[in-house]
């Protein structure tokens, strides 16, 4: 058996790396409880460790995207 991945994107950012939780996993919970970004960081810890996923989480909460193939500019801590 061989592992095959078809045309991997150049960049795929779809998770909070520190907490190892995917955006797809976080979104329904955030929606169900109407979390703001601060709520989400407080409740799950995602975005609160290294902070690199914070801009992606902000977009996710705004328009529901859970996978990013482009890099967003880092937010100041």
């Amino acid at each position: 058996m061989t592992d095959s991945t078809v045309n991997p994107p150049a960049v795929l950012i779809d998770r909070c790396i520190c907490r190892n939780r995917s955006f797809a996993d976080l979104l329904p919970e955030a929606r169900a409880r109407s979390w703001s970004l601060a709520d989400l960081i407080r409740e799950t810890g995602c975005g609160g460790q290294c902070g690199l996923c914070r801009p992606y989480l902000r977009v996710m909460l705004a328009n529901g995207r859970t996978a990013f193939t482009e890099l967003l500019p880092m937010e100041p801590a």
Binding site: P8, A10, V11, I13, I17, C18, N20, L71
Partner: peptide
Amino acid sequence: GFSEMLMMPGI
């Protein structure tokens, strides 16, 4: 996670 990310071609 970050070492895997570093290996992404887009980075």
